[in-house]
Each structure stands twice: as C-alpha cells, then as structure tokens.
C-alpha cells in the first residue's frame, strides 16, 4: 500500500478520521494533522521518551510508531489528561511539588506516571524510578518528579478518584 489513506483514531476520547501516509509517525499526525502539539518530539531514536503518549493505556514512543499501525486504537495525549477543565491529580501534584521546570518532558512524564498508577496504584519509590526511567529530564534532577508521583498516588488512593 502506498499513498494516502484515511484511518480512524480515538484520541482523548474523540473519534478522528485522518488522512495519513504510511511513513507518517503518530507524532507527526498528532502534532501536524490534529494540531495536538502538547506531545513533543526530541531525539527520534527512542532514547529521551519526550514523545510518549498512551496507546490503549500503555506508554508508547509516538516518534517510533507509524500512525497507520495504531489505527482504531485509543490514544491518550497530554491534552486529554485534564477533564472538564479539572486537572488530573498528577498534574496538580507536579505543579505543587515543583516537578515542572522547562516543561518539555512534562507531558511524557505525566502520561508515563498515569500509566504507572493505572497499573500499580501504590508504587514504591523504586518502582517509580524504574517506570519513569525512559523519560529524560535535563532540568529537575528528577527528585521533585518522584516526590510528586508519590504524593499523587497517595491522594488518588485516598480520594478513590483521579480528579478532585
């Protein structure tokens, strides 16, 4: 198959039909076709994790995923994390704990952290370190990111909800 093709994607709960070419990455399609520029690109070799989105709930590198291969799947990008104008507790915790500096890794960190908490609502510090290790951050030294995830996990457990 060559040339353009229309595929269906569900992004942040919204159904989309987009015209893609086979060589287009999910990153390109999200940013250039759907105008969802919250997903960032950086290294293009899988090393920095900046382009992470959740595909059917799992952290994926959108820069190394062909859009055509994830057709009909559920994609969550950073734009879909807050709901009804309410921040996700992880988002709030990142701000309150100073876990955000330049913010360029933040969408990837948040989505990776969400996948972790969905999988394991009560992670240890070590499990958090392990799970987020595929996302690089040049600003924070990771300390406050880990603190923020610990605290958000606790709050989500306490509330029984990811939102306030």
């Amino acid at each position: 198959m060559r040339g353009k093709q229309v595929i269906k994607l569900t992004v942040n709960g919204e159904p989309y039909e987009v015209e893609v070419e086979p060589h287009m990455t999910l990153l390109e399609v999200l940013r250039d076709k759907l105008n969802l520029t919250g997903t960032k690109g950086s290294c293009g070799v899988g090393e920095c994790g900046t382009c992470t989105v959740l595909v059917d709930g799992k952290p994926f590198l959108s820069c190394l995923t062909l859009a055509i291969t994830v057709r009909d799947k559920n994609i969550l990008t950073i734009e879909g994390l807050a709901r009804d104008k309410k921040l996700h507790i992880l988002q709030k915790a990142f701000l309150e704990h100073g876990a955000v500096q330049c913010g360029f890794c933040t969408p990837a960190m948040l989505l990776t952290a969400k996948a972790l908490l969905d999988e394991n609502p009560n992670p240890t510090r070590e499990e958090i370190r392990e799970y987020i290790s595929g996302v690089l951050c040049r600003c924070t030294g990771y300390v406050k990111i880990i603190e923020a995830i610990m605290s958000a996990a606790e709050e989500i457990r306490r509330r029984g909800s990811e939102y306030e």
Binding site: L36, I78, L95, E96, G98, V100, T106
Partner: peptide, 25 residues
Amino acid sequence: KPHPPLKMEGVPKVTGEAIYTVDVK
C-alpha cells in the same frame, strides 16, 4: 515561601497548551 509556579507559568505546561518555538504555527 515556597510558591508553585504562577498559574499562567505552570498550568499550560501540564496541560500541553504551552507553546514552545517548535510548536509555532
């Protein structure tokens, strides 16, 4: 006193709305 980033400085970064140079369109 420890102060989280001003809303206008922090919130767009956690919601993906912050526009960086690479995002200018």
